[in-house]
């Protein structure tokens, strides 16, 4: 992974960059299921989870969080995938 190069670029540009964890729409998981998982993994209240699920449904994906640590972002992605959600991460 080229994390060191990316850290340098971030300092030079002065722009804060991070690892974004994204949730993608699928034909399997329901709003209730997404709300439950977001509460379990992130502690997101059900109402906010429902808003995130609605965003995923309407736009195809939603950013659930941004993390400086790739390891931390991977940990969240793995937990979400363990529950069957279609979660990915990218450097933004």
């Amino acid at each position: 992974m080229s994390g060191r190069k990316r850290d340098v670029r971030r300092r030079d540009s002065g722009v804060t960059r991070a690892w974004a964890v994204l949730l993608h729409d699928d034909d399997i998981n329901t709003v209730e299921g997404v709300c439950y998982v977001l509460y379990e993994v992130f502690g997101i209240p059900v109402e906010n989870g429902a808003h995130a699920a609605a965003e995923v449904s309407s736009t195809g994906s939603a950013v659930l969080g941004q993390y400086e640590s790739q390891e931390q972002a991977e940990s969240f992605v793995a937990q979400l995938q363990l529950y069957g959600l279609c979660a990915t991460m990218k450097w933004v």
Partner: peptide, 8 residues
């Protein structure tokens, strides 16, 4: 089959 691709 169990888990999605984690990165683009």
């Amino acid at each position: 089959r169990l888990f999605a691709h984690a990165y683009p």
